[in-house]
C-alpha cells in the first residue's frame, strides 16, 4: 500500500522534473528572446472549437488585438486563428546542456504563441518558467545534498562516538539552529561586489543555504545512529574484530537511509523556496537568467500586480512541484516507520 503511494508520487515528480530538465524541447522559445512589440501580452488560451461551432482536432489560439475604443484593453482576434504546429524546428538549444538541437514540442507558424503571456520585455513566460525551474530546482538539489552530507557527517560522528565529542557537536548545532539564515545571507551578500556573475551567485546561494541547514538533519541522524549502534548486530560485528569505520559504514549508516531520504524530500522544496526568496529580493541569480524567484520578482511592482494578472501564473504552476515533494516526504516517512515496526515485531519475546 505505502509502496504504491510512494511510486505514484515518484512518477508525478519524475514527470514534472522531466518537463524542466528537457525545457529546451517543451518550451517553444529561447527564454531570453525579447519581442518589444508584444509586451505584457495576456496568455493565449488553447481552443478546439471555432466561433461557428466547428470542432478542430488541431488546437489553435487567437492573436490579441487592441479593442477599438480603448487605449490598452485587448481582445481575441477571432478572425485570424493561429493553429499550433507540433514538433517544429525553432530556436537552437542544448538538450540536457549537451546535445545541440532545435526541435520543439510545439510552436506557431509565423506569429509567436505565448501560453502564459509575455513579460515587460515581451519574453515568453512559459519558456521562462521551464528554464527557470532548471536553476531553482538544481539549487534545491545541490543545497539539500550539501546539507545532508554535512548533517550525516556530523550526526554520525556525534552519535557514534558520543561523550564529549557529541556534547560539543550538538551545542555547535544548536548555535546553527538559532542562526537566522536569511539575514546571514543578506550579510554575506553585502560583502560581495554588487554585480556578480550568474554562475558565482548560483554557487554562493547553494553554499550558504547548504552550509547553514545541516543542524536539523544532523540531529535527526544522530538519534538514529545512537539507537543503531546499540543494536546487537553491531555489537556482534565488533566482536569479530571490526573497526569503528567498518561498523559505521556497513551497519550503522545503512540504518539512517530512511531518515536521509525523508529529509531530502523535505529539504529540496525548502531550498527551492530559499532560492526563490533570494532571487525575488534580487540577491540571487541575476537577470536575464530566468529562475522562479526572478519570474516572481516582477510582482514587486504595483502596476504589474494590478494590471497583469497572468504574471501570477508561474507561482500557480509551481504548486504541483511542492505538492509532489510533500506527498513524497510523507509516504517516505510512513515507509520508514512501518519498516521499524515490522522489524520490532519480528523479535518475539524480549
Amino acid at each position: 500500500m505505502t509502496r504504491r503511494v510512494l511510486t505514484r508520487w515518484l512518477i508525478v515528480l519524475l514527470g514534472l522534473h522531466g518537463l524542466v530538465v528537457c525545457a529546451g524541447f517543451f518550451s517553444p522559445y529561447n527564454p531570453a528572446e525579447q519581442d518589444r512589440n508584444h509586451v505584457y501580452l495576456p496568455p493565449q488560451l488553447l481552443h478546439l472549437v471555432d466561433p461557428t461551432g466547428h470542432l478542430h482536432f488541431r488546437p489553435f489560439v487567437y492573436p490579441w488585438k487592441l479593442r477599438p475604443d480603448t487605449p490598452d484593453l485587448r481582445e481575441e482576434d477571432t478572425a485570424h486563428p493561429l493553429p499550433l504546429r507540433f514538433f517544429v524546428n525553432g530556436a537552437h538549444y542544448r538538450l540536457l546542456g549537451v546535445f545541440p538541437a532545435r526541435l520543439h514540442l510545439f510552436g506557431g507558424e509565423d506569429t509567436r504563441i505565448c501560453l502564459l503571456g509575455t513579460d515587460a520585455y515581451g519574453r515568453d513566460q512559459f519558456s521562462r518558467f521551464l528554464y527557470g525551474g532548471q536553476i531553482s530546482l538544481l539549487a534545491g538539489f545541490l543545497g539539500a545534498a550539501l546539507t545532508l552530507l554535512l548533517g550525516t557527517l556530523v550526526g554520525s560522528v556525534a552519535g557514534y562516538f558520543g561523550g564529549l565529542i557529541d556534547d560539543a557537536l550538538m551545542r555547535f548545532a544548536e548555535l546553527f539552529l538559532a542562526l537566522p539564515w536569511l539575514y546571514l545571507l543578506f550579510a554575506l551578500r553585502a560583502f560581495l561586489p554588487l554585480a556578480v556573475s550568474p554562475l558565482k551567485a548560483f554557487f554562493l546561494i547553494i553554499g550558504v543555504i547548504g552550509a547553514v541547514g545541516w543542524a536539523r538533519p544532523g540531529r535527526l541522524i544522530r538519534g538514529v545512529v545512537l539507537s543503531a549502534k546499540e543494536r546487537d548486530f553491531v555489537r556482534a560485528a565488533r566482536g569479530f574484530g571490526a573497526t569503528d569505520r567498518y561498523l559505521l559504514w556497513n551497519h550503522v549508516l545503512p540504518e539512517t537511509r530512511g531518515v536521509i531520504l525523508t529529509q531530502a524530500a523535505i529539504l529540496i522544496p525548502q531550498f527551492v523556496l530559499a532560492e526563490m526568496t533570494l532571487s525575488f529580493l534580487g540577491l540571487g541569480v541575476p537577470e536575464p537568467v530566468p529562475s522562479w524567484g526572478n519570474l516572481l520578482s516582477n510582482l514587486q511592482q504595483y502596476s504589474v500586480l494590478v494590471s497583469y494578472w497572468w504574471m501570477y501564473l508561474p507561482a500557480l504552476l509551481m504548486v504541483p512541484f511542492f505538492l509532489g515533494y510533500l506527498g513524497l516526504a510523507s509516504s517516505l516517512q510512513e515507509r520508514t516507520e512501518t519498516y521499524m515496526i515490522e522489524r520490532r515485531s519480528l523479535g518475539g519475546v524480549t
Binding site: 546487537d232 548486530f233 556482534a236 565488533r238 566482536g239 574484530g241 571490526a242 573497526t243 551497519h251 519480528l346
Partner: peptide, 22 residues
C-alpha cells in the same frame, strides 16, 4: 583488544536483533 575479541564470542538473546536484517 580488537585482535582478542574474535576469541571470545557472544551469542545474544534475540537473534532477530543480532542478525542484520538488511
Amino acid at each position: 583488544r580488537r585482535k582478542v575479541r574474535p576469541q571470545i564470542q557472544l551469542i545474544f538473546q534475540d537473534p532477530a536483533n543480532s542478525l542484520n536484517p538488511r
